[in-house]
């Protein structure tokens, strides 16, 4: 598919607009956003609630489509995808981490981490192995058989991160990942993000906490559906030498 050695950006948004409603009551959640995120970058998106950052997250996460504009995820134009392909893209290219962890209740940590692999059609034995490895990576190797209700908030979020990285997605998309955690768990989770970033994975974190933004290499601020500032704090891939893989 590629053949060119020039790395394509993971995210490429051009004039992305999202309008809810119509006529007089129309709300412009995003007003023509242009954003390019390169492979291996660690980006924090900040803004007050209602600034459009959640809408951006939904579009970037292929959970919603823009009203106007173009969005390429890892070179794939998401506007042309039907529902099934959107699901496939979410499964293969994106790992989600939510504020409220969103683990499947009454299902062990191990099974939760296996879930995206199951939907990807990975065989059981391989699934077990990869899920165990992902759990080990977040430091919960011995918690695989625990139910979400038996884990602390920080542990649950780490399981969620394991679930997000188990498919080795091009993008780790986190929506207020520390919003429901105490400060100790917050720093644990952020350390984990640093680690993932150091492994070369692209991360986009939506947050309103400065503490979280401080760890990122690039901070983008939103207001009223527009980017008001885009500040680079550290070079892309500051944590590690970026290995540009072919598609």
């Amino acid at each position: 598919m590629t053949g060119v050695r020039v790395p394509r950006p993971v995210l490429d948004l051009r004039g992305v607009t999202k309008v809810f409603g119509a006529g007089d009551t129309a709300v412009h959640a995003l007003g023509g956003v242009d954003l390019v995120v390169d492979r291996g970058d660690y980006v924090a998106v900040m803004g007050a609630s209602g600034s459009g950052k959640s809408t951006l997250m939904n579009i970037v996460g292929c959970l919603d489509v823009p009203t106007r504009g173009r969005y390429l995820l890892d070179g794939v134009d998401t506007r042309r995808l039907d529902e099934g392909r959107q699901a496939l893209v979410r499964n293969r290219k994106i790992g989600f981490v939510f504020q409220s962890f969103n683990l499947i209740p009454r299902t062990s940590a191990q099974s939760n981490v296996e879930l995206p692999l199951a939907y990807a059609g990975v065989k059981l034995a391989q699934r077990r192995e990869r899920a165990a490895a992902a759990l080990a990576r977040v430091g919960l190797a011995d918690r695989g058989h625990h139910l979400p209700s038996e884990l602390s908030g920080g542990q649950q979020q780490r399981v969620a991160i394991a679930r997000a990285i188990v498919t080795e997605p091009v993008l780790l998309l986190a929506d207020e990942p520390t919003g429901a955690l105490d400060s100790r768990s917050t720093s644990e989770v952020l350390d984990l993000f640093d680690d993932v970033s150091a492994g070369g994975r692209t991360i986009l974190v939506i947050t309103h906490e400065e503490e979280v933004a401080e760890r990122a290499h690039r901070v983008i601020r939103f207001r009223d559906g527009h980017i008001v500032s885009d500040e680079r704090r550290a070079p892309r891939g500051a944590h590690a030498v970026v290995t540009e893989g072919a598609a």
Partner: peptide, 16 residues
Amino acid sequence: TREIGIRKAIGARRGD
């Protein structure tokens, strides 16, 4: 409903 949302977000297709 929420569980269904999670499943869909991590790649469950309609058929699943």
